[in-house]
Amino acid sequence: MSSAPGPHTGIFREENAALRCLFGYAGNDLERPIPEVVLHCPKLESSTIKDVLFVSVDVDTFQGYEKISEGQKYHIGVTILDTRRLIDLYNTSTTDTWNTERIVKSTIKSYQYTIGRHRYTQRADRRFSFGASEAIDLSDIQAKFGTLVAQRRYVLVVHGGNEDAKFLENFGIVSSAAYIMDTVKAAQFILRLHYRYSLERLLEALQIEYRNLHAAGNDAHYALRALLMLTVKDAEQQRSTNSLVDDRLIRCLKRIEQTLAPGADSSTSGTTQVSHHGHQVPRH
């Protein structure tokens, strides 16, 4: 199946305008206006990139998202990209592998929290590929999240996250975000899709190797990497007509993916999962 069904498919959404603005290559010919809250985020010094955290969040539960209670079981994934650290990669030589790995590890950090002792959460603990899970109580969520974002402006990244948003807003996480970036919507224009991709299918289309999806920490991590590769594709498509596209951005985002890819680091090694018969698999 081609990831680009035809030149006239895919809708330019608000998310696409916001993405270009956040990464500093939004021209004056956008089909949708840039959201005011994104437009007014401050820029990094000596850069057109916005000074924000991209915070990818995924919530998994088998007990529903509408109401929460102390007895429910959850695993919650959070992966954060700091654009301040991204700029450090601009000035790092492509041959300086050690420094590149060090900066990437400080640019993107992944966490998984589990709530409730149960086979369901213990399985997520075992499957998390980017560190050790931390068991917390439901009442700890707001404080944990607050510590991670450290009073910075943040863009909340989700993949088709309507259900996740219902849960997160119980802790003020959605309303406190500068913007909500849905990779499902952003991908439709960039990949020229006439339907919405599951996370599995999106990763396959972007040639991002993955393992152990449906553990929330992994899903949040891969959703953020998908957003970065969507940005690369969009910027490359714009390169010939948009003078604001900075080749250093494309190069640095590719270096992040190359550093995190299997074989580059043992903590992320694994084999690609393929959904049954190539069909989309339900997220939760």
Rank of each mutant, 00 (worst) to 15 (best):
105 K>C: 06
106 S>E: 15
109 K>H: 05
109 K>M: 09
110 S>Q: 05
110 S>F: 07
111 Y>H: 13
111 Y>W: 07
112 Q>H: 05
113 Y>L: 07
114 T>D: 11
115 I>V: 09
116 G>M: 10
118 H>S: 14
118 H>V: 02
118 H>D: 15
119 R>E: 12
121 T>H: 01
121 T>Y: 02
123 R>P: 00
123 R>H: 09
123 R>D: 10
124 A>F: 01
124 A>S: 08
124 A>Y: 01
125 D>V: 10
125 D>Y: 04
125 D>Q: 13
127 R>S: 14
127 R>P: 01
128 F>W: 02
128 F>Q: 03
129 S>T: 13
130 F>V: 02
130 F>R: 09
132 A>S: 12
133 S>Y: 03
135 A>S: 14
136 I>T: 11
136 I>H: 13
137 D>T: 11
139 S>H: 09
139 S>M: 09
140 D>H: 12
140 D>T: 06
142 Q>H: 13
142 Q>A: 15
142 Q>Y: 10
142 Q>T: 15
143 A>H: 12
144 K>M: 08
144 K>Y: 08
144 K>F: 07
144 K>C: 08
145 F>T: 01
146 G>F: 07
148 L>F: 08
148 L>V: 02
149 V>A: 01
149 V>S: 04
149 V>H: 03
150 A>P: 15
151 Q>S: 14
151 Q>R: 14
151 Q>C: 10
152 R>Q: 12
152 R>L: 00
152 R>P: 05
152 R>N: 13
153 R>N: 11
155 V>L: 12
155 V>N: 10
155 V>W: 06
156 L>Q: 04
157 V>W: 04
158 V>P: 01
161 G>P: 01
163 E>F: 07
164 D>H: 04
164 D>N: 09
167 F>W: 13
167 F>Y: 10
167 F>N: 01
168 L>G: 07
168 L>K: 00
169 E>M: 04
169 E>G: 08
170 N>C: 11
170 N>M: 09
172 G>E: 00
173 I>P: 15
174 V>F: 05
176 S>V: 01
176 S>D: 13
177 A>V: 07
177 A>I: 07
178 A>I: 08
178 A>P: 06
180 I>C: 15
181 M>G: 02
182 D>P: 09
183 T>H: 00
183 T>W: 03
187 A>D: 08
188 Q>F: 02
189 F>Y: 15
190 I>T: 15
190 I>V: 15
190 I>E: 09
192 R>K: 14
193 L>Y: 03
194 H>G: 08
194 H>Y: 12
